[in-house]
Amino acid sequence: MTSILLVAEFDEQGDVTQGALQAITAAKSLSDAQVTAVVAGDASGSASSLAVDGVVTVSAIAAADNGIFEQVTADLAALVVSSSPDVVIFSKSDFGSVVGARLAFRLDAALAADCIEISGSGGSVSVTRPVYGGSALAEFEIASSPAVLTLRAGAFEPTGDTGSPSVESHDGEATVEQRALVSDTVAEAHESVRLEDADFVVSGGRGLGGPEPFSVLTDLANVLGGAVGASRAACDAGWIDHSHQVGLTGKTVSPDVYIAVAISGASQHMAGCSSSRAIVAINKDGDSNIFKEARFGVVGDWEKVLPSFLATVRDLKA
């Protein structure tokens, strides 16, 4: 048997995240998996139908924590010590990246981040993760327990199953001192369609040459009912806010259609969009890497290609 503690995140509406549903699929691929989901106390409602064997609710995960996950790290560490799972699984979200790493180092456990494949059983877990920005893949074996893993968004299909797990609550630990304190959270206004959830993403890169062309990309995204993305080069240049960055150190998107305009297709960019159903590239350099990843492409200057493309899409959608 492989006992797995799966740390499931919920969104602001209290719905389980896609990342958590993907993690369930991943967890169940381990041999003879016994999956316990750990959830925030006040999300136990939606957790009671998760396709897992058990649910443990921990109140501190939800409690508005004005530190940076210090309380929840302490609570999870205590839970891991008391339940000694073989594997602990997180999504590679902001929360999962920080808490997964802290938990592993606190417990002197093995840690593998951003896994795209996992297999094996407790005591011998194999993982595959992209390295060197996605230029290479590395396979590791972890022979100690617990193995702490974070999973890349979109690498596993979200489970469509439901279940009726037993629900238990775990008492939080004594309140830990919050040392770095969050005094305010400022949200950037985002479009009606969230980038991560969009079925169509129109992204622009350095080849756009400035901020103005993003308004054409926005028009196209609006006609398609999608969202606007960007390469890191375009964000670093200040042409568009960093919250639009797609890639290894930006957002992971998996739309039906990903339209890359004047983006070279560096591996670190593709890391954020390679699970799109179809990638469409417009780039003036026929040798650029984006054409190795795209399903459809036009070799040409975006200034000449994009206006007629937009007009035709508009007609087709009218």
Binding site: A112, A136, A138, A143, A281
Partner: peptide, 18 residues
């Protein structure tokens, strides 16, 4: 803590339609 078993460049077999 992790034993590296294999490091390789993944093959891409996508074919673009220009």
């Amino acid at each position: 803590k992790l034993e590296l078993k294999r490091l390789y460049v993944p093959e891409s077999n996508r074919q673009v339609e220009l």
